[in-house]
């Protein structure tokens, strides 16, 4: 379970990568949501760690992570929940996704060590661009974990080269200029954006932000290596695990049928 696992996952075909905020609507229900998406064939799961000030997130994920905090979810608890899922035999790659400050408070070295021990495969930290990631990058390399960087439609050619050079595992392409949240339609320029990055790197490219249903997922799967779905699933989490399962199944089929 390491960087290698992530690379192997992408080599098998386009990956369905759901984001599940741990602790929402309750800790147990969020574990059920992970179990549900894995049962539908999710190839990798982003486990969301809550933060009080999620400035890259839209209202859906803001509300969910706020609720998780009210439920007493901490970095420590998230690690425990991930460990529990591993103990149940769930083996798809896990990425911890969260903002930097709670990770800093936990201690980056402790965090990466603990993550490696429970077989978490990497980190996604939206407010940690490569310029600021020196320490975290070194720690992740030491433990052979992925540290995922982002590229956005606004990224310049220089930044694309920079991220291409530093990337390990995959690159997270933000499908639109904005915050997280399901949208009615995909950006028209998304294929060109993905192509621009593709020209600069062989690293797998996963696209996220705004993807809400099977049809959109299928569109994205035509040109991306991974399809990340967050807010749309989070909305289902408010309803029931069955609702999460239904949407995840629809998306998994769309992504995998290609």
């Amino acid at each position: 379970m390491t960087l290698k696992t992530i690379e192997t996952t992408f080599s098998r075909g386009t990956a369905f990568m759901p984001y599940i905020p741990l602790g929402y609507p309750t800790p147990e229900a969020s574990l059920d949501a992970v179990r549900a998406v894995v049962a539908t064939g999710a190839d990798m799961v982003e486990l969301g760690v809550p933060f009080s000030d999620p400035l890259a997130d839209g209202p859906t994920i803001q509300a969910a992570t706020q609720r998780a905090l009210e439920n007493g979810v901490t970095v420590e608890k998230c690690l425990q929940m991930a460990a529990q899922l591993r103990a149940e035999g769930i083996s798809v790659p896990f990425l911890l996704m969260g903002y930097l400050n709670p990770f800093l408070a936990f201690g980056l070295e402790n965090l990466v060590e603990a993550a490696a021990k429970i077989k978490i495969d990497g980190f996604i930290i939206p407010d940690l661009p490569p310029e600021e990631a020196g320490e975290m990058d070194a720690l992740c390399r030491k433990h052979d974990l992925a540290l995922v960087y982002f590229l956005a439609p606004t990224s310049t050619p220089e930044r694309i080269s920079l991220v291409a050079e530093k990337a390990r595992g995959f690159i997270y392409l933000v499908s639109l200029t904005g915050v997280t949240g399901a949208r009615n339609r995909l950006s028209d320029t998304l294929p060109q954006f993905v192509a621009r990055v593709r020209a600069a790197t062989d690293t797998p490219l996963a696209v996220g932000f705004g993807i809400g249903d099977g049809a959109q997922a299928r569109q994205v799967a035509h040109f991306a290596d991974g399809v990340i779905v967050g807010s749309a699933l989070v909305k289902r989490m408010a309803e029931s695990t069955a609702a999460v399962h239904a949407l995840a199944e629809e998306i998994a089929e769309s992504v995998h049928s290609l």
């Binding site: 890259a56 407010d127 661009p129 990224s155 930044r159 991220v163 904005g178």
Partner: peptide
């Protein structure tokens, strides 16, 4: 100090 922001904003800061 530094620049701990989402990628979308990095080009804008530059």
């Amino acid at each position: 100090g530094g620049q701990f922001v989402p990628e979308t904003l990095m080009p804008a800061l530059a």
